[in-house]
Design a protein around this nucleic acid. Structure first.
Length: 552
DNA sequence: TAATCTGGCCAC
DNA sequence: AAACGTGGCCAGATTA
């Protein structure tokens, strides 16, 4: 049973519309905000699937009232998948151009955020969610892979619930630890802005060593000029290039860069804006990346540098279970391709070491470089040199990503295991590749066409691996959420606080930590079975129980 | 002056 | 050692 959940047009509260398996409406009821927690909890127990127009519109208000829902269907996220999926017959289900739903979601993504959605969809003008659900269920039924697609839509929608819950709960973040760290590295916080003492001293050393009194080290152009007049021949001011030169300015300059980054990206201003009551609450954007990975808006939550991770400390009496999937993308590709040899090389062990033990390459580092080269489409350097060995030893796994690259070069879409497809290349791309194929094409046209084709091929090559890995991670997280429920409720229950592509952090009372660790492993195994059935692939995790994220 | 672009660095 | 995928974010430079 589906239950559409939307703002009531008549009372201050919610309207719940029952819909059967095909999406036919079967009665509706309005509930006030006060009644909502009880009514929703009861219906949730019955096993209904809640249908949101856009989970982030209403679910935060429910979570604030203590509601946690088990299963959902997010119409916005699911439409995006269904409309593009090559497993759904094209053009039959959704209009090619935007309808009222697209307009509403477009507004929700605008500056006003969810207010925009609420306004556009409030009252009588709200688009018909039941009709949209019917369209989507019909699209799934028409798919060449309905079961996989259903898994994907369920996992994606569950991700939307989790994104709201993680933001509500927040990542434990000790302001005092972070401040101590900043002061030790940079000196006291400047009262009127400007550079802290340590940065100012380093800037002075840089000016002295380069004999450039007025130099602003934050200006790439000025810095490059000054470096060159000092006889340091560099093409850019980047770290890796500077490191290769011997000069007294290099050491203070590299330190300046590192500390300046700390200051601007995660300094006092960041703390003031993003950490309140010792919690970091970024906004997660489910499927914010074309491949299905999550993105975030503000706070840089997907790039928390190792430098500041010591500030992530569990509450008193609590600890973290920190789990990340080992060599996830290679395992995903091995399973997708049915490559039993590669799967066996990684079974129960480090996959890269497995490639060494199998005699494919000589060191773990080489295995990693070769594998990443295959996944990213390396064409030069060590990575490209090592790839042929991999292709000889594992023709099925490497063949899968090669085929995805060729398809992209031809301008075709590629599709993940569960059915998320890559976007079509732009008209501009088609024009460039067409121009290169004309008999009148100049050598420059041909070069541009080849380049565009290969660029897009690298994108589609990576899309199948990264996208399917993202699906596995969503399933992992959904399975885990399910398993955490029985471990406690109310204030004392273990809960997810961070998700980063192939890594999860759970904040848990200390006494539950080992149960949580077990649940995380079970969830990974369940996710693997859910995607690949009996195929002998495993998804080992590195699991740490630490009260500080930096210690994992 | 505000919007947009660029280079650089962080994460996976 | 640095060219090979997905992103976010900042300061400075450039453009409208």
């Amino acid at each position: 049973m589906h239950v559409v959940i939307e703002p009531s047009p008549t009372i201050s509260g919610l309207r719940l519309v029952d819909a059967d398996e095909t999406g036919q409406a079967a009665g509706e009821v309005d509930v006030s905000w006060d009644e909502a927690p009880t009514v929703l909890a009861q219906r949730d127990q019955e096993g209904v699937r809640w249908v949101f127009g856009h989970t982030a519109e209403l679910y935060p208000q429910l979570v604030e009232r203590g509601v946690r829902l088990s299963r959902s269907h997010d119409l916005a996220l699911c439409r995006t998948i269904l409309r593009r999926s090559t497993t759904v017959p094209s053009g039959e289900v959704f209009p090619e151009t935007g309808d009222e739903w697209d307009a509403a979601w477009e507004a929700a993504r605008g500056d006003d955020g969810l207010t925009g959605f609420a306004e556009l969809t409030g009252g009588s003008e709200r688009p018909d969610a039941v009709a949209e659900l019917q369209r989507q269920l019909a699209a799934v039924a028409a798919s060449t892979r309905p079961a996989r697609l259903r898994s994907l839509l369920a996992a994606e929608s569950c991700g939307a619930l989790i994104a709201v819950e993680i933001r509500y709960d927040g990542l434990p973040w000790r302001r005092n630890v972070h401040e101590r760290l900043l002061t030790e590295a940079l000196g006291p916080r400047p009262v009127f802005g400007g550079r802290p003492a340590v940065l100012e001293r380093l800037a002075d050393s840089i000016r002295t060593e380069l004999d450039a009194p007025g130099l602003n080290p934050d200006s790439h152009a000025d810095l490059l000029r000054a470096l060159r007049s000092a006889g340091i021949t560099v093409e850019s001011t980047s770290k890796w290039e500077l490191q290769r030169h011997e000069h007294p300015v290099i050491e203070p300059l590299l330190r300046y860069k590192s500390l300046s980054r700390l200051m601007t990206a995660n300094g006092w201003a960041w703390l003031d804006e993003w950490v309140h009551d010792d919690r970091f609450r970024p906004e997660y954007i489910v499927a914010g990346v074309v491949t299905g990975r999550w993105a975030t808006d503000g706070g840089g939550a997907l790039q928390l540098p190792a430098q500041i991770r010591p500030a992530v400390v569990a509450d008193e009496g609590w600890t973290f279970v920190i789990a990340d999937a080992a060599q996830l993308e290679p395992r995903i590709v091995a399973a997708m391709a049915g490559d039993t040899a590669m799967a066996a090389a990684g079974y129960g062990t480090d996959l890269y070491q497995g490639l060494v033990d199998a005699g494919t390459v000589d060191t773990r580092q080489h295995a990693k470089i070769a594998m990443l080269g295959a996944l990213y489409g390396a064409t030069t350097g060590e990575s490209a040199r090592l790839m042929p060995r991999l292709m000889r030893a594992y023709p099925r796994a490497t063949g899968l990503v090669e085929a995805a690259a060729r398809a992209g070069e031809r301008g075709e879409q590629v599709t993940t295991w569960l059915g998320r497809s890559s976007p079509e290349p732009s008209e501009g791309w088609r024009a460039v590749t067409r121009a290169g194929a004309q008999v009148t094409a100049t050598p420059a046209d041909e070069r541009a066409a080849r380049r565009a084709a290969r660029d897009w091929g690298r994108f589609t090559r990576n899309f199948v691996a990264q996208g399917t890995a993202a699906e596995w991670a969503l399933c992992w997280m959904a399975e885990l959420r399910h398993r955490l429920r029985p471990l406690g409720s109310g204030e004392q229950h273990p809960h997810l606080v961070y998700f980063l592509h192939d890594e999860l952090v759970i904040h848990t009372p200390e006494q539950s930590a080992s149960l949580v660790a077990e649940a995380v492993r079970d969830a990974a195994a369940a996710a693997g079975r859910g995607l690949f059935g009996d195929f002998p692939i495993d998804f080992p995790l590195d699991v740490a129980i630490e009260c500080c994220y930096a210690d994992a």
